[in-house]
C-alpha cells in the first residue's frame, strides 16, 4: 500500500525552508557548496542551489556523489563498489552541505563523508535531508530537515522528484 504523506506543495515548502535555514546557520552563503547524493539527492541539491541563487544572486557550486552500493535499503552483502565522485570544484575551505532525500540508518552518509574527506579538507560539512525517518544505526544527525516522518522499520519511504519520477511527493510504502 502506498500513501502520499507529503504533496508537491509541501515538498516545495520544505525545500524553501531548508534553504532559509542554510542562510540562517551559515550566516550567508559565502563558501557554501552543495553535494547531492545520487540520484534524488542531486535534484534536491540543485533545487536548493536554484533557490539560493534566486535570493542571493550568486552561483552555488553543486556536486554529485554516487554511492548506490551503500544504500541503506540494500543488503549489507552487496559488494562495496567504489564511490563515483563528480565535483568540478575543490572542497578545500568550503562549507559543504551534503544533500540526500532520506536519512535512515546513516550508513549512506558515512560513506559520503569518507568520500568527501578523501577529496580535500572542507571547512565544514553539514547535512540536509528532505526526510528524516529515524532508525539511525550510527551517530549521525541532519542539520537541515525537510520533514520528520516517523516510520516502522519495515516501511519504505519513496521520494519522487519531477526530474526522475514525473511528479513531486513523498510516499510511505508498506
Amino acid at each position: 500500500m502506498q500513501k502520499e504523506v507529503v504533496d508537491s506543495m509541501a515538498m516545495k515548502r520544505a525545500l524553501t525552508r531548508i534553504t532559509y535555514e542554510i542562510i540562517e546557520q551559515n550566516k550567508g552563503i559565502r563558501d557554501v557548496a552543495l553535494v547531492g547524493i545520487k540520484t534524488r539527492g542531486v535534484y534536491i541539491a540543485q533545487r536548493i542551489a536554484a533557490r539560493l541563487q534566486q535570493l542571493e544572486a550568486a552561483t552555488i557550486p553543486v556536486g554529485e556523489l554516487d554511492i548506490t552500493a551503500f544504500r541503506d535499503d540494500q543488503p549489507l552483502t552487496v559488494a562495496m563498489a567504489p564511490v563515483a565522485y563528480q565535483l568540478d570544484f575543490d572542497v578545500a575551505g568550503k562549507q559543504v552541505i551534503l544533500v540526500d532525500d532520506v536519512l535512515f540508518t546513516g550508513r549512506t552518509i558515512r560513506a559520503a563523508l569518507d568520500a568527501l574527506m578523501g577529496g580535500g579538507r572542507p571547512q565544514s560539512i553539514s547535512l540536509a535531508v528532505l526526510v528524516d525517518r529515524g532508525h539511525r544505526e550510527l551517530p549521525i544527525r541532519a542539520d537541515f530537515i525537510g520533514k520528520n516522518i516517523p516510520t516502522a522499520l519495515q516501511e519504505r519511504i519513496k521520494v519522487s522528484v519531477t526530474e526522475v519520477d514525473g511528479h513531486d511527493g513523498i510516499e510511505i510504502i508498506n
Binding site: R13, A14, R17, E21, G134, I145, N148, P150
Partner: peptide, 14 residues
Amino acid sequence: EFVESMQQARGPVW
C-alpha cells in the same frame, strides 16, 4: 511554514 519553523526550533519529536 510557520508551524514547521516552530517544530524545527523545538527539535524532533523522538
